[in-house]
């Protein structure tokens, strides 16, 4: 594959309303490509690994900007940048989990232009797929990563159905932990999907990472008040501390009363194609003291059902250790 490294000849639409954007998206369907910050767009296009015919630039839609307080929590416009998430007082004050996750995305330069919507809707991590090979996820009929000698160090431990790529999103697991709601607009109507159901695995739809259909736009993310000011834990382990995808990340939100965990949401990133809700852990720690002993008792549950590949066994102790930290509450 030659490296092209220039944009292909393609159309550009710059709508200023959601309705217009959705109309254009519907018109072009799979031939169109929504772009916000563009951080998971231009590489695909310059490599000719994806070949849409038109770009639909959403940056002119003012209604998709800003962070607002609502009756039940907050609403984050889809175009809010990751840097804004790390500095906005509503986020840092009440939902520091999201601020921390956003602050660990890629690099400062990418966070300055990358958006919350782009971060959750970005494509998966698999170097074969991102190289432009025509694998299952690209609509092909095989996987190059999960093979006897496949180089799959970064790949999935769980729920790999033919495709073993993992979610690359740092904010996705945090939003699932916060029980966020994703607001999806199709131009005429709006539907709201929980963050947990927003992401889809390869068993359901091997060529997409979210429930978004052609013609639909993620316009906002709502975070309910339920988890405001809860006890949070976020940690991302990547090879490098900047400009790197997670090897494994953990996002946790807990309600703790007198040292006892009343309710919790634990979600791991980079262990399967979607954020992985650790409901067994959540059940196991309910009503238990938030301490090292509880953490030691439950952490191993996190890796039950893992199916490691050739080079990713290390993710099992790593996931277990990060769960342990999240439950005990410190590194």
């Amino acid at each position: 594959m030659s490296s092209h490294d220039v944009m292909p000849d393609m159309g550009l639409y710059q709508p200023v309303t959601v309705e217009d954007a959705a109309g254009i998206a519907r018109q072009f369907s799979t031939r169109g490509w929504l772009v916000g910050g563009g951080q998971d767009t231009y590489g695909w296009l310059k490599d000719r690994a994806k070949r849409p015919e038109v770009l639909i630039d959403l940056k002119g839609i003012e209604s998709m900007r800003g962070i607002r307080e609502t009756a039940d929590g907050i609403e984050i416009g889809a175009l809010v940048t990751l840097t804004e998430l790390t500095t906005n007082s509503l986020i840092t004050g009440r939902y520091s989990l999201l601020a921390e996750a956003a602050g660990r995305v890629a690099s400062p330069q990418i966070r300055n232009v990358g958006t919350i919507a782009g971060n959750v809707a970005q494509d998966v991590r698999c170097w074969y797929y991102r190289r432009g090979l025509n694998c299952y996820r690209a609509g092909g009929n095989l996987c190059y990563a999960d093979t006897p000698e496949g180089m799959n160090r970064e790949h999935a431990l769980f729920n790999a159905s033919r495709c073993v790529a993992v979610t690359a999103s740092d904010t996705g697991p945090a939003l699932v932990a916060l029980e966020a709601q994703m607001v999806i607009h199709n131009g005429s109507s709006e539907r709201v999907v929980s963050a947990e159901n927003f992401f889809v695995g390869p068993n359901i739809d091997i060529t997409h990472t979210t429930v978004l259909r052609p013609g639909e736009i993620l316009t906002a993310v709502r975070i309910p008040a339920k988890w405001a000011n809860a006890e949070f834990y976020f940690e991302k382990v990547a090879d490098r501390n900047v400009w790197d995808f997670a090897l494994v990340s953990i996002s946790a939100a807990m309600r703790v009363n007198n040292g006892v965990i009343e309710e919790s949401r634990l979600v791991a990133g980079a262990v399967e194609a979607t954020p992985r809700r650790l409901d067994r852990i959540e059940q196991a720690i309910r009503g238990k003291a938030r301490n090292q002993q509880t953490a030691d008792e439950v952490a191993a549950l996190a890796i039950q059902g893992a199916r490691p590949l050739n080079f990713n066994h290390f993710k099992m102790p790593l996931l277990e250790n990060l769960v342990n930290r999240a439950v005990r509450g410190h590194a």
């Binding site: 009929n141 095989l142 996987c143 999960d146 093979t147 006897p148 000698e149 496949g150 790999a160 033919r162």
Partner: peptide, 20 residues
């Protein structure tokens, strides 16, 4: 035979044209 099952792991595809 080219997917993972409880009984085997899928092999590398030697000839993609034949698979097609």
């Amino acid at each position: 035979l080219h997917i993972n099952t409880p009984w085997w792991n899928r092999p590398a595809v030697e000839n993609e044209a034949t698979l097609g």
